[in-house]
Design a protein around this nucleic acid. Structure first.
Lengths: 138, 138
DNA sequence: AGAGGTGATTACGTTGACGTAAATGAAACG
DNA sequence: CGTTTCATTTACGTCAACGTAATCACCTCT
């Protein structure tokens, strides 16, 4: 074999090709299909992922990086599917959801920072305690 | 009833009193007992939480705020129980574990910050896109 | 025809920290 | 003595996002 087969008669990709392209497992793709996040076409029993599936997958993975749940993502994606025409309203909705998520993430970060501060204090106290122990009975 | 009964013949507290004092549910205390984090004494079938249980509980809840798992906490607590004498070694161990946890938390915070930055970019792009839509067909 | 690779389906397992429900008991109050 | 009220035990349920078999069907190369 000279190199990877493009296997691109009309831009369809097998499950394995898609997995390699996006670094996910077959299980993940099947799972996403089951959750109605992807809709690969079937040739016989085999799944074939279209350009559209791949575009969706890209958005799914991006959404996951931002901490959206798959259910959140599904709702957003399917909104764009159901009525392709409400561009502005949909974009606006996505924008709002993103802002909400952003504030959640910032709150989480702040809480994490607080906990980090507290933990540092405890660590400092521990260090002191340790030094004391060594002074009194090294 | 004049007021709350101290019910403090020797500093023991019922499960409910303990729950109120620490803002946890009975289920939680029973769960912690089952997980060997607490060892309330039994009068008949009832649990009575000692000063020591409460001290442990305080540490448990603090540990949780830092994101330690109950299993982590159990190991640390029981270490102090099993051989009360290795004070220095134990404190040192706790110190080490805390440092590890600290770095994990800082890493998480950094990742969260990165994601926040990315999300902000996406939001800005969305805003632009939205403005464009409105310009071309408001 | 056997071996190997790819893909499919079905369904149970994982992880953590409890929630929740059901059935029962025992104490306290009037 | 009857009724609340608090308690106990047992055990299944929850949530998310897949992992991990187990079993079966095809295709391809040799």
């Amino acid at each position: 074999m000279p190199d990877k087969k493009p296997s691109d008669p009309s831009d369809l990709m097998t499950i394995r090709e898609t997995c390699e392209a996006f670094e996910v497992t077959p299980r993940t793709l099947r799972f996403y299909e089951q959750k109605e996040l992807l809709f690969p076409i079937r040739r016989g029993t085999r799944r074939l992922f279209t350009r559209r599936d791949r575009a969706r997958l890209k958005l799914i993975l991006r959404g996951k990086r931002f901490g959206f749940s798959l259910e959140d993502i599904r709702q957003l994606l399917n909104m764009y599917d159901r009525d392709p025409g409400q561009q502005e309203a949909q974009l606006l909705r996505t924008y709002e959801v993103a802002l909400e998520r952003l504030s959640t993430m910032e709150r989480q970060r702040d809480e994490l920072n607080e906990a980090i501060g507290e933990l540092k204090v405890q660590i400092a106290l521990g260090a002191e305690h340790l030094a004391e122990l060594r002074r009194s009975a090294g």
